[in-house]
């Protein structure tokens, strides 16, 4: 069964009284343990698709199902639980809270969920992404690659079923980017998450199970390995 499913999704943005169709009738499925790469030119709708898949935003028409639950017409409480328990999101620009240390950033989802043992889990995750020893540093004391690792650790700390990463290597040099990609792939396989990665890099596309090319909000091409 698919963990993430989009059914004929349309997303319009309205600005300056003009409608921009960011997604135009997109349907896709992501199964557990599967890595799907979203490629395409800037502005083709990759971020929009990820936001919808992570219940960060909602479709204008069509349906987004996460672990079988539709994100439209669901109460905010249920959506909050969905985000908290089932989704890990890695933002393009990291989105770390700069007033919190690396470990505190990673602890955040667990504390919000009221789980115990947050500190130990956070340290475990940071070790898993290769950041042991840097737990008490603040974001401004970390490099771009290290910040992205913290963001990945934070996205995975609640053992989500769905992992969404928006250009996780976009701000990094190729070497660091590749390391991050390998890390994502390894963790996906280990935890059997359904992973959606928006990316520019051909390496990323190379390691994915499915590569979807978007053009003007539509799926232009779908390659399965």
């Amino acid at each position: 069964m698919a963990l993430v499913e989009l059914r004929n999704v349309i997303k319009d943005y309205v600005s300056d009284d003009q409608k921009v169709r960011a997604l135009d009738g997109v349907s896709l499925c992501v199964a557990p343990g599967e890595v799907v790469a979203l490629v395409g030119r800037s502005g083709c709708g990759k971020s929009t698709l990820l936001n919808l898949a992570g219940a960060m935003d909602f479709p204008t028409a069509g349906e987004v199902l996460i672990d079988g639950h539709s994100t439209s017409g669901t109460s905010d409480e249920q959506l909050t639980r969905l985000r908290r328990d089932k989704i890990g999101f890695v933002f393009q620009s990291f989105q770390l809270l700069h007033t919190l240390s690396a470990a505190e950033n990673v602890e955040l989802p667990l504390l919000l969920a009221g789980r115990s043992g947050a500190r130990e889990s956070a340290f475990d995750r940071l070790r898993a992404v290769g950041l042991d020893g840097l737990e008490n540093r603040f974001p401004h004391q970390l490099s771009g690659g290290q910040m992205q690792r913290v963001a990945i650790a934070r996205a995975l700390v609640n053992a989500p079923k769905v992992l969404l990463a928006d250009e996780p290597t976009g701000n990094l040099d190729t070497l660091t980017g590749n390391a991050i990609l390998e890390l994502l792939l390894r963790l996906t396989r280990e935890q059997r998450t359904a992973t959606l990665v928006a990316t520019h890099s051909t390496e990323a596309a190379g390691i994915a199970d499915v590569v979807i090319t978007l053009r003007d909000g539509k799926i232009a091409d779908l390659k399965r390995k």
């Binding site: 905010d76 985000r83 328990d85 989105q95 809270l97 955040l108």
Partner: peptide, 16 residues
């Protein structure tokens, strides 16, 4: 406001 967005994305409820 951005921090509120991050916290919401990470699973903070409106009440929180």
């Amino acid at each position: 406001r951005a921090e509120i967005g991050i916290a919401r994305a990470l699973g903070a409820s409106r009440r929180q």
